[in-house]
Nucleic acid binder design. Sequence first.
DNA 1: CATGAATGAGAGTTCATTCAT
DNA 2: GATGAATGAACTCTCATTCAT
Lengths: 194, 194, 194, 194
Amino acid sequence: MSDKSIQKKKYITQTARRVFMEKGYRQVTMKDIVEACQISRGGLYLYFQNTGEIFEEVLKLEQEEADDVFGQNIPGEAMPSDILALFLKEQKKELLSRGPSLNKAIYEYFFENRTAGKENLLKKQFDAAVHVIEKLIQAGIQEGEFYCEDPAGAARNIMYVLEGLKIAAQTRQIPEAAVDREILYVMQGLFLEE
Amino acid sequence: MSDKSIQKKKYITQTARRVFMEKGYRQVTMKDIVEACQISRGGLYLYFQNTGEIFEEVLKLEQEEADDVFGQNIPGEAMPSDILALFLKEQKKELLSRGPSLNKAIYEYFFENRTAGKENLLKKQFDAAVHVIEKLIQAGIQEGEFYCEDPAGAARNIMYVLEGLKIAAQTRQIPEAAVDREILYVMQGLFLEE
Amino acid sequence: MSDKSIQKKKYITQTARRVFMEKGYRQVTMKDIVEACQISRGGLYLYFQNTGEIFEEVLKLEQEEADDVFGQNIPGEAMPSDILALFLKEQKKELLSRGPSLNKAIYEYFFENRTAGKENLLKKQFDAAVHVIEKLIQAGIQEGEFYCEDPAGAARNIMYVLEGLKIAAQTRQIPEAAVDREILYVMQGLFLEE
Amino acid sequence: MSDKSIQKKKYITQTARRVFMEKGYRQVTMKDIVEACQISRGGLYLYFQNTGEIFEEVLKLEQEEADDVFGQNIPGEAMPSDILALFLKEQKKELLSRGPSLNKAIYEYFFENRTAGKENLLKKQFDAAVHVIEKLIQAGIQEGEFYCEDPAGAARNIMYVLEGLKIAAQTRQIPEAAVDREILYVMQGLFLEE
DNA sequence: CATGAATGAGAGTTCATTCAT
DNA sequence: GATGAATGAACTCTCATTCAT
């Protein structure tokens, strides 16, 4: 594929991304994307055969950008509890954001395409986050901030709660306070209890 | 509406329910339901204008039947921890069942129709379950089985984890052991720690 | 299927027949037939799924009408040679007719759908004609008109020549004289040679 | 046209020939040929405007190669009847061969393009074959092998039967025995009958 | 009420053909 | 000459929705 082709494919992917954010996954037709991209019907088919392929490309792009969720903006001397709190705050912000997000489309897509472990973005991101949180908890224990007998279990628990909250936010109105409360709850479980 | 009409509407709703279980929500067309019900195309329109209306009727029906989730099969002299374990086991069974369930359709529906709190079945069932679990925990504390400083928070935590697990099961392959592990984790958090 | 449906299906079939006569088989699209019938796109699909199905229906119709090719217009006291000559003349007329005929479409269809013996119209008509010609030749022998040691072979020979002529007429310009010459040739082979 | 151009045109023609053998005439698209030739879409248009032009070029090539159908492999001292038998055997082999042949495509093409006599390959080959067979029959008469009052008529009869058989083989399943029977029949007609 | 034939909008898809590079 | 991206017309097929019976 030529350089220009790659550029165009990227252009289509990014344009389609916006369409998916607005309309979710299933709702989107090839026509929608053709129109958003302002290209010809046939032109789109040069790059993608169906909306599924396009969405998968969007996911790839998403993944690349998401790989450094944690790595950024973390001051070197920050305490583990601060980093965790920052991460949770970030998650909260995203799940409450009323603006269009890809979340809905992603869930719609995976409802239809329960792909096996390795290629499943949802699982990958989940596992990656669990891993990072676990490391944070361990660091917190060493620092004397946290007390926890099962850091891996605690990390998974946090992520399942977050996933539950995400779905809740996506499928019913959920007040910010409710999210805060849940986040507080899981954080408190980590601190030493006297 | 005549008595016969009511019967027919119920018949359509129940038949459509099976269709939704098989195909989810979005995928289902009026044609699918007409064919499943073996009624005429026009006939269906006498009762429902679109698949959304039908699904809402299915949800109503669901709600009525679901109102007594807990009330059944619980031996009077059972310990709270046993009842809770039973409930979690029940949930586990449902979320792992590979057979058709309404879950997927329900999530698909609420992804598209983030209806406000009061009428939102998902929220209602969630809140109801939280309430029951909270009562159980309180009973467990009194019985000396559980130790918990925030029964309401613990109950919500359990339910969010369950919702997260439900989504995980729906969107990626999840082994039974993983579900067991999470359930065990939340249960252990309730027992007295020495 | 209701009576009205049957009527409409017949109407479509007959209208489509004309389309096939004009354009052959492959060339014809569902759209062509929709337009010729002046019905809606979807309307046609109520009766047929693709042009193949329509053409098969046309063939059925053809077959019913063709079943009495020989039976008509034959004066009771006619000599076998006269009847045979009449049949050959009939065939000649058809194969030379410049007006649109179904021939081209039929061959196109069977080029693509070399269906097995039993359902193959081409084979059926061929075999039926061979059988009738054989009977005629036998009758002619008894009457003392013909001499022939292998009536069945002669009958098949005649039909293969006719098929060859039909194709020739369809695929290149063939003068009437050429057809006459071939017909004469096969007829002469039947008469007693002194 | 440069030398290189001529080479390329020949390359395209020969590659397209294989495509036509596989898919017939109508079915083949410019895209098919572009892909088979592994050249660019635009490149093909430098040489041919449509599949018809390409097929005509294929036919020309065919014609050149076919000009010496009879001339080869015939031992000088062979009897006419042997040569004729050999030719018929050759024809039989070809018409029964289940492998891909150009036959179908050729008929499809001429069904659509009933070109006038001079340029019509089908007619040319037919007439050429008739001529050779006629010569053979005459030679056979002189040798005392054959008896025939109308060698030209007999030759034409043989060729029409062959054409009929070819079509039959192409459009319905025909057993080898049936072909043998017809060939035997026309051969026997040539031998002296006592 | 109930039927189901009919409509037509719209999605998907494929190709012949052009044209800037 | 040669390339291959791009276009747009044309076709297939499916459904929501209507309406005469």
